[in-house]
Design a protein around this nucleic acid. Structure first.
Lengths: 171, 171
DNA sequence: CTTGAACCTCGACCGCGGTTGAGGTCTAGG
DNA sequence: CCTAGACCTCAACCGCGGTCGAGGTTCAAG
């Protein structure tokens, strides 16, 4: 056992369940930091374990690392996160969870309504015409998908920018 | 307007909001199919629009394409999906949604409980020690993360296989 | 028949969250 | 001092869900 209170990357990995490569990655992403020995090896202060544990919580919550980094921006690297720090961060994450839950509940409602309709009368289906993009126009070309890009699609982790494309074919 | 009832990829794209590249991709993945002209251009029967609309619904629900393909395995490509087809598929997807909602609700509960504790007493925190992996042992090396890989982590879209690694450091 | 728009294939690339491996260096125990 | 094992960097690669562009072909209107 080492005498001082700095941990090697292997020790941190053993205590957090993370691979060294993941710790390197988090460091590149600015989520954690380390000092170096004379021979360029990483040494972590003990309180970095707390920070890493917050990252792991966020991971379990499905928070993307970029958002974690954003939440960490005002937590200094060189001290333990305080109770107030954690409460501030966790409140934000709680809101994220609530949003996702509500989005899922909405989808469930739509889906249940849609099972009844058999989705064979497509123009009246909420699932096929989300956000009421297409009014009551019954015939002719229809846009079925086109999520309308309002970040409201919180259930699906799509990354591509939405297609910018003119409506249907000219009649 | 074309006289027969086959649609070009551009027409299908206009009606579904999908790019031609996405339709090609879905075809490579076996989700949809097309016939070809003598000059090798795709032609889609009209009922393929229904199939595509099911894919779009699944996308909105956050169902990965692989699962959609699996759900489509018993729907023949050459006819319209029937009401019974849709009900069978949608029931499966409803279960998926329920699972995700329940996972989120669980996480929300844990998070709320955890805001109170301030997460400074880490060994009693459900979020940091999910699934009760670590008993009541207070001191020494602890595994903080290690999601336990039971597909129950339905909230987070992680793809890497979980690390296979022995416990913490030997004491 | 000509022409321009639409279509084809193939391969490279994006972001995300990392892993794997090659090739080389450091550190701690004996 | 020696050596095994831990560590370093850098680059390439994975799956997912597609997009983009090059280079070439086809279709349909006039």
């Amino acid at each position: 056992m080492r005498s001082d209170d700095l941990l090697t990357v292997g020790e941190v990995g053993a205590r957090t369940g993370l691979a060294a490569s993941a710790l390197h990655f988090y460091e590149r992403e600015g989520l954690i930091a380390s000092s170096r020995t004379a021979g360029n090896q990483r040494r972590y202060p003990r309180h970095m374990l707390r920070r890493i544990s917050l990252v792991l919580v966020a991971k379990r919550l499905g928070i993307p690392l970029g958002e974690v980094a954003e939440a960490f921006r005002d937590l200094p690297m060189d001290r333990e996160p305080t109770r107030a720090d954690w409460q501030r961060v966790s409140r934000v994450w709680k809101v994220r969870l609530e949003e996702r839950r509500e989005a899922i509940v909405r989808l469930e409602k739509e889906l249940v309504g849609c099972i009844g309709c058999g989705c064979l009368a497509m123009r009246s289906c909420d699932l096929l015409n989300p956000e009421d993009v297409l009014g009551a126009d019954g015939t002719g070309p229809q846009r079925l998908g086109a999520v309308t890009a309002g970040r409201a699609a919180a259930a699906s982790p799509t990354h591509g920018r939405p297609r910018t494309e003119g409506r249907g074919l000219p009649p």
